[in-house]
């Protein structure tokens, strides 16, 4: 998939602003530069990448809201742009930053509207709504106008709204944005439940990769409009340089370990990052014990957010 935008450049001085009204200057933004992606039926795929990487553009192309410059996008056997109405009737799209609910009306009105516009049979609507109400806890907010909902409540209602017609494909763009821990967990558990129960294919973008790791079987990292990584999370963790973490509690002094990189000291414990393929754990411990009294130690894999932040940092500097 290729997608470029023309962005109008603004003048920096008043005379430039006036001049560019008559002689506009544009610059080309390459949002996507040849992404080749296949998502299998029933798969849950996380799309990740730094801000401006092209994740949301990819979701918009997949959902038919944008047409690619030159590429073929096929989803559910349709061209999302040419067969838009047939395609969207089988797809649930949810944008975390933009609600599709009727702002001044109770949540119930939006759902009733959708039943009519989407031509959902009454019995299908009742069945789907009952499931959504239970799994996403809609009962409390059913009669509340959308504008009065909290961020988490709005997100739950929006997600239910997208999933009301029981879509085969669900595209979620930042569905956990701004949610508290509980709301985030509810949303992700719900996605997991519909994937397991109905084999719904899900593509989700999020910055909360720790949560996504439990949900998605595969992660596609987008960087500067290209796929930088495509595979399981475990493979991403094995990327050279991601290493493991070693926490050592000592009598106060911090050992200097040649085979590890010091990260931080918190609550009397010193944390290091090391690459087990280069320096083994017993070697590091021996090195530490030679310098200080080690009272306790623990080793763990780094949080996925840290792994990805490391990748972003590496991409930024290369």
């Amino acid at each position: 998939m290729w997608k470029s935008y023309l962005q109008r450049e603004r003048g920096s001085t008043p005379s430039e602003v006036v001049a560019r009204l008559f002689r506009p200057r544009f610059r080309t933004i390459d949002a996507l530069r040849g992404i080749d992606l296949t998502i299998g039926h029933g798969e849950v795929v996380a799309l990740a990448g730094p801000n401006g990487a092209g994740k949301s553009t990819a979701v918009k192309l997949l959902s038919g809201l944008l047409a690619p410059d030159h590429a073929t996008v096929r989803a559910l056997g349709c061209d999302p742009v040419r067969d838009r109405m047939r395609f969207v009737a089988r797809t649930g799209v949810c944008f975390g930053q933009r609600t599709e609910l009727w702002w001044d009306h109770p949540v119930a009105s939006s759902f009733d509207w959708k039943r009519v516009v989407w031509n959902i049979e009454r019995q299908d609507y009742d069945r789907s709504l009952a499931v959504l109400t239970e799994l996403l806890g809609l009962a409390d907010i059913w009669r509340t106008p959308a504008r009065e909902l909290s961020l988490g409540q709005k997100m739950r209602a929006d997600l239910a709204f997208a999933l009301l017609p029981e879509p085969e494909l669900v595209l979620l763009d930042e569905p956990t944005l701004g949610l508290d821990v509980l709301a985030k967990r509810q949303v992700l558990e719900f996605c997991q439940a519909i994937n397991e129960a109905r084999g719904v294919t899900i593509a989700v973008t999020s910055h909360d990769l720790t949560d996504l790791e439990a949900l998605a079987s595969r992660i596609v990292m987008v960087h500067k409009g290209e796929v930088a990584f495509d595979g399981p999370f475990s493979e991403l963790r094995a990327t050279p340089g991601t290493g493991r973490r070693l926490r050592i509690r000592t009598d106060g002094l911090r050992p200097v370990l040649a085979g590890a990189r010091f990260l931080e000291t918190r609550d009397g414990a010193h944390e290091f990052s090391h690459d087990p393929s280069v320096t083994s754990l017993p070697e590091l411990l021996a090195e530490a014990e030679a310098q200080v009294a080690v009272l306790d130690m623990e080793t763990h894999r780094p949080p996925i957010d840290d792994v990805i932040a490391g990748l972003y940092e590496r991409w930024r500097t290369t």
């Binding site: 809201l65 109405m85 944008f95 933009r98 516009v117």
Partner: peptide, 13 residues
């Protein structure tokens, strides 16, 4: 708000 294209997510003209 960039919501104009969101009108396209409904299966109607």
């Amino acid at each position: 708000r960039g919501q104009f294209d969101h009108l396209l997510v409904h299966p109607q003209p």
